[in-house]
Simulated scan of single mutants.
Amino acid sequence: MSNIININFRTIESIGDLENVRRLESIIWSEYESTPIHQTLTAIKNGGIMLGAFIDEKIIGFQFSFPGFNGEKVYLCSHILGIHPEYRKLGIGEKLKRLQKEEALKKGYDLITWTYDPLETVNGNLNLHKLGARCNKYVENCYGEMQDELNEGMPSDRFTVEWWIKEEAVEKPNQYEFDNDSLVIKVVNDSKGYPVPLELDLIKNSESGFLFVPVPSDMQTLKKYSSELALSWRMSTGQVFTHYFQNGWTAIDLVKSQSNPALYLYVLGYVKA
């Protein structure tokens, strides 16, 4: 698959293409969870956006968004992004998000929001590190109990991210200044090399510099190794993110740990009210 270069990206509006999107959803997740055509069609006729990635005329990825309103502001709610299992790790997700930004600007949006699991570092790397979105809202068990392979057995906690698409991207340092005092979860690796969360630090009150929240580099592999350890990470990180978000901190980046290959680090910056 690495030699495939002829991937085309475009907006989707026809019923035939929308049915192909629904079928792709069924492959990625399940028939039960695929979005009905009448819903996607209505959304794109009323400010929503459906994007597709194609090889020839075969759809291999998609992104679906619809308008949102919080009582004060209209924004674009980015609902689902999916890639066919045979075509992942080709940068398709990032290209769909870049195209989403272009189409959203054409429609007059300046903000795109969406949710993702903060323990899925591939998503975090795309959303925060590459795109420049940020998050200061943690939602516990956002979607209730989910039965698909990625989410089964874990509370569906989520970040709600904001991508302000008219703002200039903030240039991030190649490497953050880091010491153990800025790590808010102490971690050790077990005998198999898997990270284990230990002491939580919820008393930092500095309003300068950065704080770092460690998360496992490969949550799905860790979950197969030990569901109890996976749940421990969910509970520990949930407590930490909730605390610091409520106290003025925002997740602005996700980077690999330089000292422990089993970890990624969320970078928190303090934002004055």
Rank of each mutant, 00 (worst) to 15 (best):
C77D: 15
S78N: 11
S78V: 07
H79S: 11
H79C: 07
H79Q: 14
H79M: 05
I80R: 14
I80D: 12
I80E: 12
I80S: 11
I80P: 06
L81V: 15
L81A: 12
L81T: 14
L81W: 00
L81Y: 02
L81M: 14
G82W: 01
G82M: 02
G82D: 03
G82V: 00
I83L: 04
I83W: 00
I83T: 13
I83Q: 00
I83V: 15
I83A: 01
H84D: 14
H84R: 05
P85Y: 05
P85H: 09
P85D: 08
P85Q: 07
P85M: 05
E86T: 12
E86C: 11
E86R: 11
E86W: 09
Y87H: 09
Y87D: 02
Y87Q: 03
Y87K: 03
R88H: 06
R88M: 09
R88K: 14
K89G: 08
K89T: 13
K89I: 13
K89E: 14
K89F: 13
L90Y: 02
L90K: 03
L90W: 04
L90M: 15
L90T: 05
L90A: 03
G91F: 05
G91N: 09
G91Y: 06
G91M: 05
I92M: 01
I92W: 00
I92C: 00
I92V: 07
I92H: 00
G93H: 01
G93M: 02
G93A: 13
G93S: 09
E94L: 15
E94F: 14
E94C: 11
E94I: 14
K95F: 04
K95G: 05
K95I: 09
K95Q: 12
K95C: 04
K95S: 09
L96G: 02
L96C: 05
L96S: 01
L96E: 01
L96M: 08
L96Y: 01
K97M: 03
K97Y: 01
K97Q: 08
K97S: 02
K97W: 03
R98P: 07
R98L: 15
R98K: 14
R98N: 13
L99T: 04
L99V: 07
L99Y: 04
L99R: 06
L99K: 10
Q100T: 06
Q100G: 03
Q100M: 04
Q100K: 04
Q100W: 01
K101D: 02
K101R: 15
K101N: 05
K101M: 11
E102A: 10
E102Q: 13
E102N: 13
E103R: 08
E103V: 09
E103P: 05
A104C: 10
A104R: 00
L105R: 10
L105M: 14
L105F: 08
K106C: 06
K106P: 04
K106V: 08
K107L: 15
K107E: 12
K107Q: 15
K107Y: 08
G108W: 07
G108F: 11
G108M: 11
G108R: 10
Y109D: 00
Y109Q: 03
Y109M: 07
Y109F: 09
Y109E: 03
D110G: 12
D110V: 12
D110E: 13
D110Y: 14
L111S: 10
L111V: 15
I112C: 06
T113W: 04
T113R: 14
T113M: 14
T113S: 12
